[in-house]
Amino acid sequence: MSIKQISVFLENKPGRLDEMISLLAKKNIDIRALSLAETKDFGIARMIVDDAFETANLLRDNNLIANFTSVLAFAVPDEPGGLSKLLSVFTEAKVNIEYMYAFLGNNGGKHAYMIFRVSNTKESEKALVSRGLRPMTEEDISRI
C-alpha cells in the first residue's frame, strides 16, 4: 500500500518554512517525517503527517500550494546493512528511486523507516511485494 505524502511549494524567502510549519503547529498536526528539496529559486517540503487531508485543506486555505504524492514506506532493522538488504530487492525488481528520506520513530531503536518516491508506483509496488517486501500502510505509520 502506498501512503500519502504532502508536497508543498515554498518560495525562496526567509521565514517561509517557519510560516508553513507554524500553521500545522497551531492545528495540532503531527509531522511524522519531513524532507526539504531545494533549488536555487524555490523549494518543496515533503511531509508525512497524521492527517493528510486536513493538512492539505489547511495549507490551501492559507494560500499555499499543496498536493498529494504516493510514496512507499518500509521499516528496516536499525543495524548495519539494514538499508542495503532492502535496496538490493529494489535493484532485483528493477525499481527506480526518484528520491528517498528516512525517519526513526519511538520504537526503542529497533527499526528505521524509509520513504521512497519511485517511478511507476503501482507496478513497482507489485514487483516488490512479489519479492516478499511489505510496504507500510498509513495505519502502520500512525502506530509508530
Binding site: Q5, S7, F9, E11, A37, T39, D41, F42, I44, R46, R60, I65, N67, T69, E98, R117
Partner: peptide
C-alpha cells in the same frame, strides 16, 4: 505566482516549465 495547476512534486518538471 505559482498555481496549483502548475505545481508538481517533481522539481525537474517545475524547472523545465521555468
Amino acid at each position: 505566482e505559482m498555481t496549483p495547476e502548475m505545481f508538481t512534486d517533481n522539481i525537474g518538471e517545475i524547472e523545465a516549465k521555468q
